[in-house]
């Protein structure tokens, strides 16, 4: 069997899920698909059991925050790979910051447990159906989500790095 191309993957995914697949791009050769957040579990389950694609390995889950995208501020990025076909795929699900909920994939992958906890810990995304969604790396009593963009890292009074000094 020849190598599976990104076009083939995208076609197959769209054929199965139709409008749940919102957009796609191919940065640096990796197919990156934006999907409907509520369907992430269904899509990953289908990818796992599909007899051709065989995406049976969850590589990574992480979050990202885009304050300018109103109504879809938080993004959860899933990297899956098919060891048999030697291909990788990136799935992105955007959720609003007021109600950042999407289904947990822990029922499918045991590895998702801590990855989702980490994403929750830093971005506050709620994974419904997660068995133990609590903070993992930060202190339990913390009351904010530190990787969101509204928390600057450095001292706000510091002025030596202002853009005007660099002609920006």
């Amino acid at each position: 069997m020849g190598a599976i191309t990104n076009e083939f993957m995208l076609e197959r995914l769209q054929g199965q899920f139709g409008n749940k697949v919102k957009s796609s791009e191919e940065p640096f050769g990796m197919l990156s698909v934006t999907i409907d957040p509520s369907s992430i579990l269904d899509i990953l389950r289908w990818l796992n059991t599909d007899r051709i694609l065989k995406f049976q390995f969850l590589t990574d889950i992480c979050g990202s925050h885009y304050p300018d995208l109103k109504g879809q501020e938080l993004c959860v990025v899933y990297h899956v790979q098919s060891m048999e076909n030697n291909i990788r795929l990136r799935l992105k699900a955007y959720v609003p910051i007021e109600k950042p909920e999407l289904p947990s994939v822990t029922s499918l992958y045991a590895s998702a447990n801590w990855m989702e906890r980490e994403t929750y810990d830093f971005y506050g995304t709620i994974f419904t159906g997660h068995p133990n969604l609590k903070r993992i790396l930060n202190a339990d009593e913390m009351d904010y989500f530190p990787l969101r963009k509204e928390f600057p890292l450095e001292d706000a009074t510091r002025s030596d790095k202002e853009d005007k000094y660099f002609g920006r």
Binding site: L137, N138, P146, L147, L153
Partner: peptide
Amino acid sequence: CGYIHRAFEK
């Protein structure tokens, strides 16, 4: 875990 978390990503 998290005893030596140093917030590298931030």
